[in-house]
Nucleic acid binder design. Structure first.
Lengths: 169, 169
DNA sequence: GCTATATTGCTAAGCACTTAGCTATATTGA
DNA sequence: TCAATATAGCTAAGTGCTTAGCAATATAGC
């Protein structure tokens, strides 16, 4: 434990050590920090998106369509699988995006149940303009980490993510 | 990049490389994985809490009171500062907890504006019973990481968290 | 071929958060 | 001293998610 920082996570651990010395609460240091870091990152990214008049959820949909390549079309099902939310949430996001004329919904000729969601020129323009700003924000967040450290961080998180996926009830 | 895994994050990076080769989107690998890991962890922890008839938000309040030590009393203000939510959210959490008789709200004798939130015996009992299960779940999430790796992960995340905190608009 | 089941996309209702703004009390400073 | 400002706690309204459940279409099994 280098750099004896007395931050929030450290303080919580000390409290538990005093109150429940029978429990090994050391995992809280890592798990708690993942959660806290993610929330702070969300706030920073949201500020960037706000400068481009979108929220994170809307940008997520627009970016998913954008990176799928021409003709920038995906089904609500595919968008649901990409985002980590329910199909109902995607339907509501699409309602908002359609209302703002950033995407269109058309019937799928090959599947009578399906729809085809496509970026409008305005939607494409928005995501193209916001993307460099967004990427720059993410660069700033990681500016303090070397290339090697970023790789380490990714791999360590991947292990935890896999454990979380397998622990599913 | 060891272990050429073809997971969600990797696929997204490949798509961007094809669509926007002018942008260095490599930070997405790390930032995206922090977010995804945090959400999956939340789901796993929520399942544990559900077995004890609480949600994560309620447990967070109960645990904060518990680890503050006897007499298990804090002000709404202190609870707000500990949780990463607004004071309005804490007020509503306390409404729910008070309704379930897991905490009490009393006036603060030393500050006419303040309140004193205290664990009831039922609240203390609940958190004492849920805590070992919760800690065990967190251990399981980190089972794949050595002690050294956990330390590394914490430190790397702390750097990102600090960058996020300083990037506040 | 036709019935049973699965899939797709959606709306409705409920929930926990947010922002905005209120009241009551405490603190500051002219 | 006492007016101006700050702080504590709260409610109300709005937002974006969830679960539940719908109709329409596709697929599987007999």
């Amino acid at each position: 434990m280098l750099g004896g920082m007395e931050d929030q996570v450290t303080r919580i651990l000390k409290q538990w050590a005093a109150e429940r010395p029978d429990l090994d609460v050391s995992p809280m240091a890592v798990v708690g920090r993942i959660s806290r870091t993610a929330r702070k990152i969300d706030a920073v990214l949201a500020a960037t998106f706000a400068r481009h008049d979108v929220d994170s959820a809307s940008f997520d949909v627009l970016a998913t369509l954008r990176r799928s390549g021409k003709p920038f079309t995906l089904s609500p099902r595919e968008l649901t699988e990409s985002a980590m939310v329910t199909s109902a949430a995607i339907a509501q996001r699409l309602n908002r995006l359609e209302e703002r004329h950033l995407v269109t919904r058309a019937p799928d000729a090959k599947d009578g149940r399906g729809k085809q969601v496509t970026l409008t020129p305005a939607g494409l323009d928005l995501v193209n303009r916001a993307l460099p700003d967004h990427v720059e924000t993410e660069h700033a967040l990681l500016a303090g980490l070397s290339k090697e450290e970023r790789g380490q961080l990714s791999e360590l998180l991947a292990k935890v993510e896999q454990a979380a996926t397998e622990t599913r009830p």
